[in-house]
Design a protein around this nucleic acid. Sequence first.
DNA 1: TAAAAATATTAGTTTAACCTAATTGTAGGC
DNA 2: GCCTACAATTAGGTTAAACTAATATTTTTA
Lengths: 144, 144
Amino acid sequence: MTALTEGLQDYLEAILLCERENRFVRTKHLAERLGVKSPSAHAAVKELTRLKLVEHESYGHIELTPEGRREAESVYSKHKVLYHFFAETLGMPPKLAEDTACGIEHHLNDKTTGKITKLLDFIERKTKEDPGFAAELKRALSDE
Amino acid sequence: MTALTEGLQDYLEAILLCERENRFVRTKHLAERLGVKSPSAHAAVKELTRLKLVEHESYGHIELTPEGRREAESVYSKHKVLYHFFAETLGMPPKLAEDTACGIEHHLNDKTTGKITKLLDFIERKTKEDPGFAAELKRALSDE
DNA sequence: TAAAAATATTAGTTTAACCTAATTGTAGGC
DNA sequence: GCCTACAATTAGGTTAAACTAATATTTTTA
């Protein structure tokens, strides 16, 4: 096991998302997305390269290895579940839901994420099937 | 605002809990509880002293200031809500629920914690009132 | 009470993040 | 083809957290 730090997980996730938006990924993109300066992003990419999670030739663009992609997708899938939980289920504002998901995503293992997913699916199903339930839940969560 | 690091929040929480178990708190207790060596705990306590969140005379015991206690209790209350969520609601094993709560507690603001609490209360109430609901939920969460 | 054991503290090192400032490389416009 | 602007990299410094090893203090016990 690699015991990837939270920081490096964030970089992997950022690479995955930049890839989708930009067709290729550069130091600058990561720095912007993560709110750090380029030398910081550069150092992180260097370490990810050492760990064989990305490939990066000097002054070129950055690519995930299969292993890096697996890792990145694992983090991102947790992110999505959490975002859904905070934004949709709990009705928190998008920005806060996003930031909270970011902070937490590194601390869930797959089992836990699975459980949360099941709970969300259950709540969603009940909400669709039973308008009474939906109303009750909404009322219970409101800040009256 | 003090912008307390996660690490220091952990120490405050540990002081609060040691207090309840031991009548007084020493460097050694914190180190044991947090799984670090005494010099690390010592350094943390020194920093907390500088921040006026604890009082600590050399070779003596460690006490929370009112401000430190408020902070410690805020962290611990989040911990409890999360533990309840993972262990009771999701049915995860105690140790895992505990560890997960520890990792996450620093990333929730009061609003978010409030929302989660409301959701848990709602689920608990429904579960008590309606055996059918309880069974459905249990089934939805099972790893069949 | 003096020696031994336990605990606390200090000193100095390491690692992972970040930063700024300085340098090197690349690519487009003239 | 050269110059400029932008981007990437390197160099060197900071902070928070941990560690080990060494020293100091307190407590226990013989």
